[in-house]
């Protein structure tokens, strides 16, 4: 078995044709038997291996049966084995963009920009892609408009036609949503908030409560007056202390 292995990787190529031996795969013929202690001859292989140059092992190793082995890659090489986000110090960016939900619309990124910027740029021909594909034909420099040139910008009085007014309409900002977002975590029962009747009921109950309390107090007072274990002022002291 060991002979087969060594012949496959060592001796067989030495006797085969040059083309096949340089690839490391010899012909299918079985090699002639060799003594077990005999090491393959280096002199037989060197002329065939000269073409491969530096990619192969150094000449000292060619006595070995693994003369076609290549050098192992250097351990310092940056591969996908390492976390590349931490390697390039992008953890902060990762946490910033992937940690929380990024808002979908362009107006969330540029809130100060006027106009309807969330609509596709291809609709009104304002896409950046078209600017790259078909750059505008213009000069290299910007020069201010002279008096005669400005005459071309004399406008008629009155409002703009309706089709051009859309330029100045701002998308509605949903402030109410933000409010809901703030309130949601605080309110354990969101279903109660929309109904207007509930607070009234609560108020009514509150209004009723003092009357009931008064009635109860009166009954208690009456009972206490008649009862033999009347606490008197000593019993009211903790309450007065607690108020302080």
């Amino acid at each position: 078995m060991t002979e087969m292995f060594s012949t496959l990787f060592g001796q067989n190529e030495a006797q085969g044709p040059p083309g096949s031996s340089s690839l490391g795969f010899g012909p299918g013929k079985p090699p002639p038997p060799m003594p077990q202690n005999q090491v393959p001859m280096a002199g037989q292989m060197t002329p065939q291996l000269g073409d491969d140059g530096p990619t192969l092992r150094k000449t000292g190793a060619m006595n070995e049966p693994f003369y076609l082995l290549r050098e192992l890659p250097v351990g310092n090489e940056l591969t996908g084995n390492t976390n590349l986000i931490t390697h390039y110090n992008l953890e902060h960016a990762y946490n910033k963009f992937c940690g929380k939900k990024v808002k979908e619309k362009l107006s969330n990124f540029l809130p100060e920009l006027p106009g309807m910027i969330d609509s596709p740029g291809t609709q009104d021909g304002s896409s950046l892609r078209s600017l790259i594909d078909k750059p505008p034909v213009c000069g290299n420099s910007f020069s201010p408009l002279t008096g005669t040139m400005l005459t071309g910008f004399r406008l008629h009085t009155g409002p703009l036609p309706e089709q051009y007014r859309l330029m100045h309409i701002q998308p509605p900002k949903k402030k109410s949503k933000h409010k809901h977002k703030h309130h949601r975590p605080q309110d354990p029962l969101p279903q109660e908030t929309p109904s207007d009747t509930d607070p009234k009921k609560k108020k009514k109950k509150r209004d009723d409560d003092p009357d009931r309390k008064k009635k109860k107090k009166d009954k208690k007072k009456k009972k206490n007056r008649h009862s033999p274990d009347h606490p008197g002022l000593a019993g009211s002291q903790p309450n007065s202390n607690s108020l302080r």
């Binding site: 084995n81 590349l84 986000i85 992937c98 990024v102 808002k103 990124f109 740029g121 892609r129």
Partner: peptide, 30 residues
């Protein structure tokens, strides 16, 4: 990024998707 802007989308989504893709590929290769 220009495609995102042209579609009226937040360009930060591109950064986010890029980072997520890079991490996924990194994990695959690892």
């Amino acid at each position: 990024v220009f495609d995102y802007i042209d579609q009226g989308r937040n360009p930060q989504l591109y950064t986010k998707e890029c980072l997520e893709r890079a991490l996924a590929r990194n994990e695959q290769v690892k």
